[in-house]
Design a protein around this nucleic acid. Structure first.
Ligand SMILES: [Mn+2]
Ligand SMILES: [Mn+2]
Ligand SMILES: [Mn+2]
Ligand SMILES: [Mn+2]
Lengths: 219, 219
DNA sequence: ACATTATTTTAGGCATAACTAAAACAAACT
DNA sequence: AGTTTGTTTTAGTTATGCCTAAAATAATGT
């Protein structure tokens, strides 16, 4: 049986694989807030169940089966987030936490009803792509706003959904995924990033700017 | 910590207390599909935690604290059922099962948003009352249609939400809570119950009739 | 009152998923 | 190559929540 706990492991491994080709035990332990020794035990079980390949001291990699399960959980998570924002009016800084629970309980029938009600959306409120029913995902190539050159226009692609404080801050400023902005200038020592959004000017610090992922506009 | 399992125990005890003043271990075990010995272990723990009083060999009774927790779970369950029927278009025979999961994961904030979106409803789709935020519930006095006398009018009050087949059957016939019907006649041996609903005549068997709870109409 | 039957509890186990402490291994540094 | 450091695994426990089999208690019938 695939428990909620297993789903969380698979999801975490999937996300860490965007950074590590083979996910180290410690990274996974850190991400799940579980002791490394406990993780070793669980990944052995997951390997036995065919969800991942495990090479001792080398880390783990999801099998196609593990990947499928992970994408399914992520799909429900992101659909749930968008549903709560659009249909229930839940603030975008709170939906991630709620979706951590919804992702484990929504039936396939509900998953599909919600998807249809939302008009088969492509992205969650934080800009992450929603995997298709068949498990296809396409991540947009993006980079931190801090790496953008002054004078260049870009579109906000994605923001960290696990940081409610950041989300509230950006939400108030209107800096949400899909919005077009221009980086007007960078103050000395990277201390301030001056942004133009439509007609308004917004100044944000380096810390916040580094957490806004953008894509350049290609015609 | 109040786990999902504890919530299910408290809910089951609450519902059994409508039948037993003190709930026997076996009845609870039966209702939860758990061995009686396991139930003994759990109720000891729940007693220690102050959710119920336990007299060995005599059964259990919820304390005010246990009652409060039980009503909270039931409230979320019924709100979730109605939400799924009205807002997500889920058939009424499927929502009970889904709500068994939702009842454990909805935050208070979502509970309240859903309640407001539904316009502070009083009953779930199957006719059971939705406890208020303060834990008030009022059950309507109802009895099986089989106990109604021929020629008398009544309103369908409540149907068993755990029986999808019955619900589909009644749903197709339009025999849902709130509908006014008249019991026209009862065929010999209680073999058939002839109902008038508006202009249409409906015949149903004793088995089904016994599961429709009605209230007589008082002017 | 005594025996039979039904209910409930006790005793002993098991699976899951976590923990800490100690040992083993791998990587990096001199 | 040998030592230090960091990572990972092993070994041994723990808490939950379930199980079966046996013992205890309560209810019922003669
Ligand atoms: Mn999220
Ligand atoms: Mn989760
Ligand atoms: Mn129900
Ligand atoms: Mn439940």
């Amino acid at each position: 049986m695939v428990t909620e706990i297993i789903e969380n492991y698979l999801k975490a491994i999937y996300e860490l694989q965007r950074k590590y080709q083979s996910v180290p035990t410690n990274a996974l332990a850190e991400s799940l807030s579980i002791a490394p020794a406990s993780v070793t035990g669980m990944i052995k079980k997951l390997a036995e169940n065919g969800f991942l390949t495990y090479t001792p001291y080398r880390g783990v990699e999801l099998t196609p089966e593990g990947m499928e399960k992970a994408l399914k959980v992520i799909r429900v998570h992101r659909l749930a987030e968008l549903y709560m924002v659009k249909m229930l009016g839940v603030p975008w800084d709170k939906v991630h936490e709620e979706a951590e629970k919804w992702e484990h309980v929504l039936s396939e029938e509900l998953e599909e009803r919600i998807e249809a009600l939302l008009g088969y959306p492509k992205w969650c409120p934080h800009g992450s792509p929603i995997p298709s029913r068949e498990g296809k995902v396409e991540y947009v190539k993006s980079f931190p706003l801090t790496e953008l050159a002054a004078g260049i226009s870009a579109v906000i692609a994605e923001v960290d959904d696990r940081n409610p404080e950041l989300l509230r801050y950006l939400g108030e400023l209107g800096l949400i995924p899909g919005e077009e902005i221009e980086l007007v200038e960078i103050a000395p020592f990277d201390s301030l990033f001056r942004i133009k959004q439509g007609e308004s000017q917004i100044d944000i610090g380096k810390e916040a700017a580094s957490k806004i992922l953008v894509t350049v506009i290609v015609e």
